[in-house]
Design a binder for these strands. Structure first.
Lengths: 259, 259
DNA sequence: ATCCGGCAAATGTACGGACATTTTTTCCTG
DNA sequence: CAGGAAAAAATGTCCGTACATTTGCCGGAT
């Protein structure tokens, strides 16, 4: 879905002041870049901790912290005595979304940045209405953009349909890179009580592929969320489109009592 | 994945040596227990690193590693100068999941019928190991088939990797079309405490497409579930592959208390 | 050629120290 | 009493050391 370019726009967003990250994060980013560039193909060994320490003039502690970040991102796996091996390509695989609750939705959005491309009121045609499961012809504040991770890589497309009762939230968006529904909660005193989530596999549209730096036509994971108040009113619908096989939507389900 | 037709099958047991976990893991477990027991309610501060070091007679390094585990588990959040605060009890999150997840897995399997095509012991090559996130070379009881709905239409491919400790369950499968893990629970007295679920979009392989009556190469939703006991032992891994855009994986998330 | 044992290499755990940064508390002044 | 500054408290980063555990390689024996 492409939200039509809005006729009127609010002020452009301004990037926050960025300070130098800690050394271990910089080392991790450098190694990640080299992994993604193919310098260390899947299956190959990274340099040892000792060698990396010499290369980056860093202590073993700092190198280990960097490697821990890479492990958490799913790029490498370390084995005692055997070294650290590159286990999977693609940085998006590390953008694992641990969605377990509404609070977790907030956490994911806080760890990524929404880069807004278009904001404007839209009326849903038949296709769009079917896709977002909202009434055909109804009008919503449309917001579309790309969600990016820490190092600026595109994680997914993010498209929003916000109920017009809350359209003034548009004024806050240029200065806000995080999740939108808490803004609505703050600004209007509404409370999201329930999120309905639907996940499916779709072909990646050419327009989406271009802005995500991925190949068009491949498989993409589409995650749609419908945010409702306790009274059942739809406040917002969000569709995140993650390209390719690199992204996995993960959930951990637990039993707490005897079955 | 195509499981080779089984020639012979026996249960093989490989008892794993169980050793004491590292100290930092034990400290984390103890603190988690106290958090879940309500000793530190949501919003309250844990003891400082220094205090925990005194309490557990551990170095700050060890305490910090323990706190890192708790942070990664989403139980606490640390802020420089302010301490470590309990932000979300895992048990309550788990309660949310219980409402809709493992029971939902059973419901889905009950509403469809597993048509088994192949059963046999398989050793995981590198590709398979990566796909199911189990050790390469490890051996599992492989079961593969198609899950069909009421009218017999193919819903998805269903592939299982069952720990060889439970391989005798194979004897029950010919007369059993429903979910497999409750069979294991009944037959062996094991209890599934946790299911880790990963959903991604993949291209539909030609072999899978043929048995599902779908076009090869299109987008498919791959849902992988790893079933674990409370001790963390992997009992079973399941991959369901749903063709095309027809299938949507739906979840409803609710807030149980005020934000 | 194969197998086994020993040793070196490589990561994992855990101790210690120091300084930086942020938050909270305390103290002082108007 | 209120506000601001300074000090103390608390976590974050980064250095170092030592030992434990596991893996891989090499050489010798069969």
């Amino acid at each position: 879905m492409r939200v039509p370019r809005a006729v009127s726009r609010t002020a452009e967003s301004q990037p926050a002041a960025v300070e130098a990250p800690p050394r271990y994060r910089r080392i991790a980013a450098q190694l990640k870049e080299e992994i993604l560039a193919g310098l260390y193909p899947v299956g190959s060994l990274l340099p040892t901790e000792a060698a990396l320490g010499r290369r980056f003039a860093a202590s073993r502690h700092t190198v280990r912290e960097a490697l821990r970040l890479l492990r958490e991102e799913g790029l490498v796996a370390s084995r005692r005595g055997a070294g650290t091996r590159v286990v999977s390509p693609g940085e998006e695989e590390g953008a694992v979304q641990q969605v377990m609750s509404i609070n977790d939705l907030l956490a994911f959005a806080r760890e990524s940045r929404l880069e807004i491309e278009a904001v404007g009121v839209v009326a849903l045609d038949a296709d769009a209405a079917r896709r977002v499961e909202l009434p055909e012809g109804s009008r919503w504040l449309g917001v579309s953009g790309v969600r990016r991770g820490r190092e600026g890589a595109a994680l997914c497309r993010a498209d929003y349909w916000i109920h017009l009762d809350y359209a003034a939230v548009a004024r806050l968006l240029p200065r806000h890179a995080g999740p939108i529904f808490p803004l609505i909660e703050d600004l209007y005193g509404e409370r999201i009580a329930e999120v309905e989530q639907a996940i499916r596999a779709v072909p990646l549209a050419a327009a989406d592929a271009a802005s995500l730096g991925a190949a068009a036509g491949g498989a993409a994971l589409e995650v749609r969320r419908t945010y409702r108040t306790a009274a059942g009113k739809v406040v917002q619908v969000t569709i995140n489109t993650h390209p390719g096989e690199r992204f996995a939507h993960r959930t951990t389900l637990r039993r707490l009592r005897p079955a």
